[in-house]
């Protein structure tokens, strides 16, 4: 039995051209740029957040004053909470756009491979990337919700919403399971950033020194993880009380 193999004519498109061009936000590279820029915003926030956390070691008064100051930066020149509200709006927008681009790219990827390989594709590049970035990102999103309920609104905190910020930190992290949840989440953030940090440079076309960027990403991620975990563990072992 013979069959004729028909070669696709090079001029015949498989996908008919759309009526409207996809534009910047419809292109894969545009979506990736959104991912990179919003990720960079979130990393800068994390660095500030981590530095602020270290105030815990300066004692209850200093930490509570710092927490109060965050709510009145620029006062009386600016209304109270003006700066904080601005930061909140930027963060919500950044998280929203980061999620949007992740979903858009994941859907694009799913459409690009409708038939899977029978033999499970073996990674040739140490690639934990896809699972860490997509499922890890989801884990981090869920953690952020819990984290806000715990230490921002205080409703999920053992000391309750009425307690001072310092009291909430100490009350929560005394419990090993709270510290465990935070540890898992923060390590996940570190793994996310290990790829995300250098990847953002690559996506924005700044990735000409890839090895250096990858090493830098590992260092910055490890630094953030260590900084974030220092407070819960200090509480757990009783250094901060």
């Amino acid at each position: 039995m013979t069959s004729i193999i028909e070669r696709g004519a090079a001029t015949r498109p498989i996908v008919p051209p759309p009526a409207r061009k996809p534009g910047f936000f419809g292109s894969s590279t545009g979506q990736k740029a959104v991912m990179a820029v919003t990720g960079a915003v979130l990393v800068l926030f994390l660095a500030g957040h981590m530095a602020g956390n270290l105030k815990t070691f300066a004692g209850a008064t200093a930490f509570n004053e710092y927490a109060a100051w965050l709510r009145e930066v620029g006062y009386p020149a600016l209304p109270k909470r003006a700066v904080l509200t601005l930061v909140e709006v930027v963060l919500v927008a950044a998280v929203g756009l980061h999620l949007w681009s992740a979903v858009a790219l994941a859907r694009r990827a799913a459409r690009a491979r409708p038939v899977r390989y029978a033999r499970r594709r073996r990674s040739q590049a140490g690639g934990y990337v896809v699972h860490i970035m997509r499922w890890g990102g989801l884990t981090i999103a869920l953690f952020v919700i819990y984290h806000l309920l715990d230490l921002t609104f205080g409703v999920a905190n053992p000391a309750g919403p009425a307690a001072t910020p310092y009291a909430r930190v100490v009350a929560g992290f005394q419990h090993w399971y709270v510290t465990l949840v935070y540890t898992l989440a923060v390590v996940m953030v570190g793994l996310h950033l290990r790829h995300g940090l250098w990847s953002a440079f690559q996506t924005l076309g700044l990735g000409r020194h890839r090895k250096a960027l990858q090493a830098g990403a590992v260092l910055v991620s490890a630094g953030l993880v260590a900084g974030f975990l220092s407070v819960p563990y200090a509480v757990l072992i009783g250094v901060v009380r």
Binding site: P13, I14, V15, P17, P18, K21, P22, G26, S27, S28, T29, Q31, K32, L105, R108, A109, R111, A112, R113, S123, Q124, A125, G126, G127, V129, V130, M133, H195, W198, S199, Q202, T203
Partner: peptide, 22 residues
């Protein structure tokens, strides 16, 4: 070229490095 690549239905790059490895 990027526009055409998208139109053909290829996915987006997530810098996994699998491509350059093979």
């Amino acid at each position: 070229m990027v526009e055409q690549m998208d139109l053909e239905g290829f996915g987006g790059c997530t810098n996994t490095g699998e491509c350059t490895a093979v």
